[in-house]
Design a protein around this nucleic acid. Structure first.
Lengths: 193, 193
DNA sequence: CGAATAAATCAACAGGTGTTGACTTGCTTC
DNA sequence: GAAGCAAGTCAACACCTGTTGATTTATTCG
């Protein structure tokens, strides 16, 4: 018998990565509670039990998804507080390159599962370590408060757009440049007002 | 035998209200998926089946909770766009009176269950009808975009504070007035920038 | 008082959840 | 090539979910 699909040689690190990728994609679109381990396993073409074997528990899998590519943390590009408004506005703009798009996906995963006790605790860690900390340090004076205000705007836009699917903030073609400028201005206000 | 608790006479409207109140309190603190009907029933001192009898389904109960006191809609106080920044800043301040506190609870219920497909759709309706619509109308020029920006900030603060429990935005005593003023300024920027 | 009616409860269903132990398969190394 | 070991699968587990039909209880009306 001729196989149509090539036999995937047994490869622990590859299957692990496959599961991780499948989980990522699911968690971008559904909440922690909404996603079932069987869904993820099915997407990855793997038995459910294997997830438990590799990641211990659903919570462990989620933690690994969230902390997956931490080396590419959200805020390494901007060098000074002055760059922040423009940087964040670009991040919010939807014509982002692949790298930024992936960073935005991580952000959306955070927002989607922020409720749900187990996932929420993991997310709280991530927010403090990878977002609020670096931001506050970069800003300097009143860093903590300013970082919180910036993050609030970021979260609000993300929730309104990606979770609630309200589309008035979806920048379409013509307005994009103007709208991005407005966001830049808003971020600046959060830093200076 | 003497009863310690008075026998509650059978009263359909009263029990209905009790269930509704119990559901409200649960949905403020847990997400749609996280709350079980048995939890709510237990809080209300009632059998689970009664919920189905009164509200048809979990979704029906949630809808009724969300649309409960619609007459007291979120944005009836401000009379003009100029009043909005101060009004929203006051709404965000935590020393709000009972009325505003209740409105904030409704807002948090929205944020908590915005994920979860069933609840999300209900919430989307509410957001358009009771929040974005009135806001845009009040603002006038560029109303839709401005309303979205205002709501973004509102959502961000709510999520960061009540869902993620990040406390740097929790205004404690001394800073409160100063912090409220900053928020007012930020809302103003969202309208004018 | 006794019959009728509505309110509330009981019990169970069918489906789905994460998790676990036993089992089989495939690769590698002697 | 056969043994050993790890990778992957199967099956089942307790548990919990929302929902529903039959049953009991309290109230009301003739």
């Amino acid at each position: 018998m001729v196989r149509t699909t090539p036999i995937r040689k047994r490869n622990p690190v590859a299957t692990r990565a496959t599961i991780l990728a499948a989980a990522h994609q699911r968690f971008v679109r559904e909440s922690y509670d909404g996603v079932g381990l069987r869904d993820i396993a099915s997407d990855a073409g793997v038995d459910v039990a294997l997830i438990g074997r590799y990641f211990g528990s659903k919570e462990g899998l989620f933690r690994e998804v969230v902390f997956a590519d931490k080396e590419a943390d959200l805020f390494r590009e901007p060098k000074s507080a002055a760059d922040l408004p423009a940087f964040l506005a670009q991040l919010v703009a939807e014509d982002a390159d692949e790298d930024r798009q992936h960073r935005m996906e991580m952000f959306i995963i955070m927002l989607r599962s922020a409720s749900s006790p187990k996932a929420g605790e993991i997310i709280r860690d991530l927010v403090h370590l990878d977002v609020l900390g670096p931001l506050a340090e970069l800003i300097g004076k009143d860093g903590e408060l300013r970082a919180n205000m910036l993050l609030s705007i970021l979260i609000g836009i993300g929730v309104l757009r990606s979770i609630m699917r309200v589309d008035a903030l979806s920048l379409d073609d013509g307005d994009r440049a103007e709208c991005t400028e407005r966001f830049r201005c808003l971020f600046e206000a959060a830093l200076t007002c």
